[in-house]
Nucleic acid binder design. Structure first.
Lengths: 235, 235
DNA sequence: CATTATAATTGTACCGGTATAATTTTTCAA
DNA sequence: TTGAAAAATTATACCGGTACAATTATAATG
């Protein structure tokens, strides 16, 4: 682990352990550089990381402060790891209802940057949380990048397999959100009525080298799912 | 404007002007430092800014590449400026249906970090786009920070007034998303039926010094609104 | 005492340097 | 020609320095 990441997690731990609240001040930069015995720029990197994660905010001429604790039970949309982990208390379980190798539709070709001749894994899953249905997931994986999947891998964490098993590195992702009405099939899976609201999330995950490998369409139970985003003005 | 911001916008302009596409390679760091005649770290800051904005991605050992152009017509949730500007083609217009000074409810006190004795502006607006209703907005402004508002200010851009008129600087924001069913009143305003889906966004805007000044609850017409987020693995 | 001017504090911008890790290209052996 | 090893390329980590801008604290002024 890199120095600035290590320091960031130590500062985060410090905030939690000391039960620091919104607006509480952290030691000044100079003190932090001395305590961690690293250069200014390393501390700055660590603090910038914590700022992007929404843990702290920095005010020029004033200091470094703890940011508001977010509401609980929300799914963070910026974590970029399949979103499962965010549900702290109860781990979701998943049921695989389809796992096939297919030719891509036009939509899938567009989003995964592939052609008619390429093959993709088509995976449908249901995710449960606290015995209730959280969401319906239809994912497409570029077979050229993810050459092999089976029910076991897919019912556990696919991302864990991609990173640990295949040694691939997940980079950035594009997400598209909208609301709509459930159709009959979706309503049955989610235990809701047709015409009820659905919360739709489409995600395209890329490797660090920019290749899109996963296009997922997720339909959330609107009663079970609330989402969370933190934004910074200086981006 | 700072050097690294200036350089970032010049690079962005270069990408647009030269019609660069997804995956196209930009000049290497060394070339950029030479061309802009600045130090390495200034270029790095500019590139990191562009990366957070989703314009480019960087690959160690390989180069700097243009990221996928996002789908059009989506509202970006990370821009942090009231979201209006994002609708490129047609500027939305807004109608003010309420503007009062009131005592805060418990919910408003919690989100704006104020007490029972403090006062807030309560502002209800409807935003239209292409003649259709885009959303219903109910905003609360801390009167201690925004001492004066009138219909004129509120029907134009409140954020413009806050920044230019009052000289305040907008920092970070927390956003909460969920879907639900429209009630009768909301349905009428949006020209939809009660029970139809609604896309709800709650935002708390803070100044750069961490003070929350605006708590807004926005109800979007699900037929008019699609949202967009870009995430990076190394945050 | 209130208000304004001055000074101290503190994070950020920018510089230019060395070292390192990931990727790509080239070289060389089989 | 293929594949593996070596070299070159390229972004990133980390260092420590100066200058600067925003804020806060202090002193001066009426």
């Amino acid at each position: 682990m890199l120095k600035y990441q290590q320091i960031a997690s130590e500062i985060e731990k410090y905030i939690v352990d000391h039960n620091l609240q919104q607006g509480d001040k952290l030691p000044i930069l100079e003190t932090l550089t001395a305590q961690f015995a690293v250069s200014k720029s390393t501390i700055t990197s660590a603090l910038d990381l914590l700022e992007r994660k929404g843990i702290i905010f920095q005010v020029r001429g004033s200091g470094i402060f703890v940011r508001r604790h977010k509401r609980k039970g929300y799914i963070s949309l910026l974590s970029n790891q399949g979103f499962s982990k965010e549900m702290e208390e109860s781990q979701p379980t998943s049921e695989v209802i389809e796992l096939d190798i297919v030719r891509p539709t036009q939509e899938v070709m567009d989003n995964l940057n592939i052609g008619t001749e390429d093959e993709v894994y088509s995976v449908k899953r249901i995710q449960y949380i606290n015995g209730e249905t959280l969401c319906l997931e239809h994912s497409y994986y570029n077979k050229a990048i993810i050459p092999y999947l089976n029910k076991e891998i897919v019912s556990e964490s696919i991302f864990h397999y991609i990173q640990e098993g295949l040694g691939l590195k997940v980079g950035f992702s594009d997400m598209y959100l909208h609301a709509d009405k459930l159709n009959k099939e979706e309503a049955e899976y989610l235990g809701l009525e047709p015409g009820d609201p659905k919360f739709c999330l489409e995600v395209i995950f890329h490797l660090t080298n920019g290749q899109p490998f996963d296009f997922s369409k997720i339909t959330y139970n609107y009663k079970q799912s609330q989402f969370f985003i933190q934004a910074n003005s200086h981006f």
